[in-house]
Every structure is written in structure tokens, then in C-alpha cells.
């Protein structure tokens, strides 16, 4: 998608601007721009696909459409946690690729005004740092805003994994 198209989309989706879907991984709260989110579903039967990175759990059947699901915990190199009835799959559509993101639990939809969104601190030793595009301040809390593109297509990260 060209920048122009993106701008147009953003203009059209003015009502969605500044809105974020927040979800939790353990004690940390993350946000995804609402425009990427198509739906939130409960845990599904996942069909494992061999020879994939650990964080790609497999594929699911979303009303006849086959989409891959990623475990965000594993993507961020956090310890795995067993899925329970609070586990959710957030279906996002990024550049026309539909992907399910498995998260501990979905929190709420938040309005974060532009002035409360700041760049993340440069120094960090966390693996998930690379997937954070900004930090949103809501009262005393901070929400880590995800860079969805990187989450899906981080070639650099792939290479690093191979080296390890």
C-alpha cells in the first residue's frame, strides 16, 4: 500500500483515530491501533503446521478462511503459558494479511490522545522492545503500543533467531 492510500484510509477512518485495543500479557498492557483489528474470538482448535517458528502456533478455520495464529507471548520471548478460557485471539488485518494473535486476555478499547503518545525509551534490553512503536500514557499507567507490521514481518528478528 502506498503512503497516499494509507493517508486516505486514515482520513476515512477518522473515527477510529486515537483508539486502541488493549490486551494483557502478564502484568504488561499492550495496545494495537483499532484500525488493524477485525475481530476478537475465543480460543480455537489450532492445527499445528510443522517446520514453523515456535511462536507460529498453526492455522485456524475462521468461517471458511484459513488464517495463521501467532502466540504473542512466544513472539516476545516470554515464557509460554497454558491457554485458558480468558485466552483470546485478536484477528488483525495488516496489509491484507489476516493473522490471529493469541494474547492472555483482552482488556478494553481506549482513547489515547496524540499528546499522550510518546516515543519509547531508546535503551532497553527486552526482546519485545523492537515491536513497540510508541508508549501511550493513560493516567498513571503506560500502554505499550505495538508495531503490527514488525510483529508480522520482522526479517531481522528471524535472522537473529537462526543465529541463536
Amino acid at each position: 500500500m502506498s503512503e497516499l492510500d494509507q493517508n486516505q484510509l486514515e482520513a476515512e477512518e477518522d473515527t477510529q483515530k486515537g483508539k486502541f485495543l488493549t490486551f494483557a500479557l502478564g502484568s504488561e498492557v499492550y495496545g494495537i491501533e483499532i484500525k488493524y483489528v477485525t475481530e476478537i474470538i475465543g480460543m480455537q482448535t489450532i492445527t499445528e503446521v510443522p517446520d514453523l517458528p515456535e511462536y507460529v502456533k498453526g492455522i485456524i478455520n475462521l468461517r471458511g478462511k484459513i488464517i495463521p495464529v501467532l502466540d504473542v507471548r512466544l513472539r516476545f520471548k516470554k515464557t509460554a503459558r497454558e491457554y485458558n478460557d480468558r485466552t483470546c485471539i485478536i484477528v488483525v488485518d495488516i496489509k491484507e494479511v489476516a493473522v490471529g494473535l493469541i494474547v492472555d486476555t483482552v482488556a478494553e478499547v481506549l482513547n489515547i490522545p496524540e499528546q499522550d503518545i510518546v516515543l519509547p525509551p531508546q535503551v532497553s534490553n527486552h526482546d519485545y522492545q523492537r515491536y513497540i512503536s510508541a508508549i501511550g500514557k493513560v493516567g498513571q499507567d503506560v500502554k505499550l503500543i505495538l508495531d503490527c507490521n514488525k510483529l508480522l514481518n520482522d526479517e531481522e528478528a528471524e535472522r537473529l533467531e537462526i543465529v541463536r
Binding site: 503446521v49 517446520d51 514453523l52 492455522i59 484459513i66 488464517i67 495463521p68 494479511v97 489476516a98 508480522l152
Partner: peptide, 9 residues
């Protein structure tokens, strides 16, 4: 077909 995100194996 498998989703494009999953590379052909």
C-alpha cells in the same frame, strides 16, 4: 492453499 504468511514447506 495455506495462508501466504506461512511459507511453503
Amino acid at each position: 492453499a495455506l495462508p501466504g504468511y506461512i511459507k511453503k514447506m
